[in-house]
Simulated assay, not measured.
Amino acid sequence: MKILLLVVGKTTENYFAQAINEYHCRLKHYISFEMEVIPELKNTKNLTFDQQKEKEADLILKYLQPGDYTVLLDERGKDYTSMQFADYIEKKMHFVPKKLIFIVGGPYGFSESIYKIANEKISLSKMTFSHQMIRLIFIEQLYRAMSILNNEPYHHE
């Protein structure tokens, strides 16, 4: 199984990019992991938020294939502790035949069409974080999950 983090817009803050790269390198020891960046929309001043979400949805859908399992990182999703998330990842490793795709939407969230095709939603916190931060928080939690599953000392209870 391959895990893909699909994000809308590049990581613009260098300190986030460096930290994301560090955890990306660490994850390679455990699983097949990639992060794909969908370019931000251009010329959006005349578009409503819903129109922007639909255009982003069209771009997101180009990355999805039959058999992929899609999980939206969404504030209305299910909450997990780090230990529960590790269990979740372990179960998906046995259940998902192709790619497990986690998606971070654009600044206005997801369109209804993306909600309809998603297999589930996960929340990383009840608090609101920038989309730049969510990438780092997610990849760190994925690394933490892998260290938990491998009985390594990164996570302390």
Rank of each mutant, 00 (worst) to 15 (best):
K2C: 02
K2M: 10
I3Y: 04
L4K: 13
L5N: 08
L6D: 07
V7K: 06
K10Y: 07
E13N: 04
E13Y: 06
N21V: 08
N21P: 00
H24Q: 12
H24V: 02
C25L: 14
L27Q: 03
K28Q: 15
E34V: 04
E34P: 00
E34W: 02
E36Y: 06
E36L: 11
E36W: 06
I38E: 04
P39C: 08
P39G: 02
P39F: 03
E40S: 15
L41E: 09
K42Q: 15
K42V: 11
T44M: 08
T44A: 12
K45C: 10
K45Y: 11
L47A: 11
L47G: 13
T48N: 09
K53E: 00
K55D: 02
E56I: 03
L59A: 14
I60Q: 03
I60T: 03
Y63S: 05
Q65I: 09
D68P: 05
D68W: 00
V71Y: 01
L72F: 04
D74K: 08
R76N: 12
R76F: 05
G77L: 07
G77E: 04
K78H: 08
Y80E: 05
S82Y: 09
M83D: 13
Q84P: 00
D87Q: 14
E90F: 12
H94N: 15
H94R: 15
F95C: 07
F95P: 00
V96D: 06
V96L: 09
K98Y: 05
V104E: 03
G106F: 09
Y108S: 10
G109S: 05
I114P: 01
Y115A: 01
A118N: 07
A118I: 00
N119W: 02
S125N: 11
M127Y: 14
T128V: 15
F129C: 10
S130E: 10
H131V: 10
M133V: 11
M133K: 03
L136V: 09
E140T: 09
Y143H: 07
R144K: 13
A145T: 08
A145Q: 05
I148P: 00
L149W: 09
L149G: 11
N150Q: 14
N150V: 10
N151T: 11
Y154F: 15
